[in-house]
Structure formats: structure tokens, C-alpha cells
């Protein structure tokens, strides 16, 4: 077996040796599974934040992760983007395994867009410059192309008229929509959302959620850490509940909300839904 095949094998969830015919099937499966996480463990010093996480995300799937604070949900998606290093287990994104190899880290970061709770727009650049920076310097696009693309996405998040302003001049909701557009400009395969509405005033949450729903309907693969249960109901293909660094339960939204299996999930839902 060649090294390439070995590598491939390591990346597929189902790794039993098969005759050549089924390699094709494996390949399609690998492509279908955009993100594969196996046996992921992470510690902060002595503190075990992520415990034996297994998670596969198919292309086009929308996943909502919820759970009490400190349950490791943000850490999980930050690991996918290599903002946090993990100590055990494997993460494979679109066929690229997240190792120490900087080339792979670069590739993955190019494929994965991230939206932060605190927006993290670059305050010294205009909205347009925020959106074109990475396409120009990472994707090596021409400024003209990058700006054209950026304007398209800014239109889609409904703020094309703000393009020449600076982030500080925009409301929180507008800034978060810019942050979404900025990530989209890199044409990512998958978008990660880290509590995108938590830092927003209530009246601005909807404008951001609308953009996210639209994105979901267009078929973007999404992993969202959020407490917006309404959003989870409308959009999610699967809802994951995490507590104490583990995945406690995962199910389609109707099942998850209507008859949660574990007691902890029930308790959590009780607190989140009846306030």
C-alpha cells in the first residue's frame, strides 16, 4: 500500500481494509465527511477541557452546539481552526489532517471561516479593507477581484453602503455581519460561529441571525456555538449538547428539543427555554 493510501486511511472514519473497489466508496465518504474528529482530548494544564470527542460533519450539514458555559464547546470549534492546540486525537478537515505541519494548518485555515463573539474586526482598516485583506494576501487575488467579491458579500449581508466606513462607526450587529462577510470572502468550505450573538444588544440579534439563516439555506456547512434555540430549531440538521468537555447527546432538533434522552440535557433545556 502506498503512503498516500495510508494517509488516506488514517483520515477515514471507517478504516477496515477493503478491496480496491471500496476505496472509491471510502473516497466519496471522505469527501462527504467534511470534518472528522476522532478521540479528541485537550487539557489546560491539569484541567481536562475536551474528553474523547468524536464528531463527523458532512458537507452542507448545519450543526448547533450548545451547553452550559465552561463545557468546552468554544474550545472544540477553536481546535478545528487550530486556534487552540489539542493533545490527543485527530482532526481532519476536507481531507487535510491537522498536524504539526504548518502547511496543513495554513490549508485548513484557508478552508475554515470563523466568526467570533467579539467580532474582532480590524479597527484601523475600512470595512472593505477588512474584507479584502485575506483574499489579497492569502489567496493572492488581485485587489480588483477581491474588492468585487467583497462588495458581493457585503451586499449579501446587506451593508454595501458602509463599505468605506471604519468598524468603530458601525453598530454591533452591523459589525458582526461584516465579520461574516469577511470570512465568506475567503470562500471557506465550512463556517465556524463562536457565540456570534452573545455580545449583541437584543434588537441586533435578529439581523445577524437572518444572515446566518440565509447562509444555511444556501447550503454552507456550518458549526455554530450558540444559545439561540430558535435558530437551532429552524436551521440545524443536528443539535449537539456538551457538558464537562463531553458530547452528552446529539440529535436532530425536533428529537433534541421534544424528547431529550439524558437528564442533564433536560435540565439545561429547562433553564434555557423557560426564562
Amino acid at each position: 500500500m502506498s503512503e498516500a493510501e495510508l494517509q488516506q486511511k488514517a483520515t477515514t472514519a471507517d478504516s477496515a481494509a477493503k478491496p480496491t473497489v471500496s476505496i472509491e466508496r471510502e473516497l466519496t465518504q471522505a469527501q462527504a465527511n467534511l470534518i472528522e474528529i476522532n478521540g479528541l482530548n485537550k487539557w489546560y494544564g491539569q484541567f481536562h477541557v475536551l474528553r474523547d470527542i468524536d464528531l463527523n460533519v458532512r458537507k452542507g450539514e448545519k450543526i448547533v452546539i450548545c451547553g452550559p458555559s465552561g463545557s468546552g464547546k468554544s474550545t472544540l470549534i477553536r481546535c478545528i481552526n487550530c486556534l487552540e492546540e489539542h493533545q490527543q486525537g485527530s482532526i481532519v478537515v476536507d481531507g487535510t489532517r491537522l498536524t504539526n505541519d504548518l502547511k496543513n494548518i495554513e490549508t485548513i485555515r484557508r478552508e475554515v471561516g470563523m466568526v467570533f463573539q467579539q467580532f474582532n474586526l480590524f479597527p484601523h482598516l475600512t470595512i472593505l479593507e477588512n474584507c479584502t485583506l485575506a483574499p489579497i494576501w492569502v489567496r493572492k487575488q488581485s485587489r480588483k477581484d477581491a474588492e468585487k467579491l467583497a462588495m458581493e458579500y457585503l451586499e449579501r449581508v446587506r451593508i454595501p453602503d458602509q463599505a468605506l466606513k471604519y468598524p468603530g462607526q458601525l453598530s454591533g450587529g452591523q459589525q458582526q455581519r461584516v465579520a461574516i462577510a469577511r470570512s465568506l470572502c475567503m470562500n471557506p468550505e465550512v463556517m465556524l460561529f463562536d457565540e456570534p450573538t452573545s455580545a449583541l444588544d437584543p434588537e441586533m440579534i435578529k439581523e445577524v441571525l437572518d444572515v446566518m439563516i440565509e447562509l444555511a439555506q444556501e447550503g454552507m456547512t456550518m458549526i455554530c456555538v450558540t444559545h439561540e434555540m430558535g435558530f437551532a430549531r429552524t436551521v440545524a440538521d443536528r443539535v449537539i449538547f456538551m457538558d464537562e468537555g463531553q458530547i452528552i447527546e446529539q440529535a436532530p432538533p425536533e428529537e433534541f428539543f421534544n424528547n431529550p434522552r439524558s437528564e442533564r440535557t433536560q435540565k439545561f433545556l429547562g433553564q434555557v427555554l423557560n426564562h
Binding site: E3, A4, Q7, Q8, G95, T96, D101, K103, N104
Partner: peptide, 11 residues
């Protein structure tokens, strides 16, 4: 599968 590492090793 687009794996740059695999490609370079093969060469």
C-alpha cells in the same frame, strides 16, 4: 485527495 504532504513524499 488533495494532500500536499503525501504528494511531496511520493516524489
Amino acid at each position: 485527495m488533495s494532500d500536499p504532504e503525501g504528494a511531496s513524499i511520493n516524489n
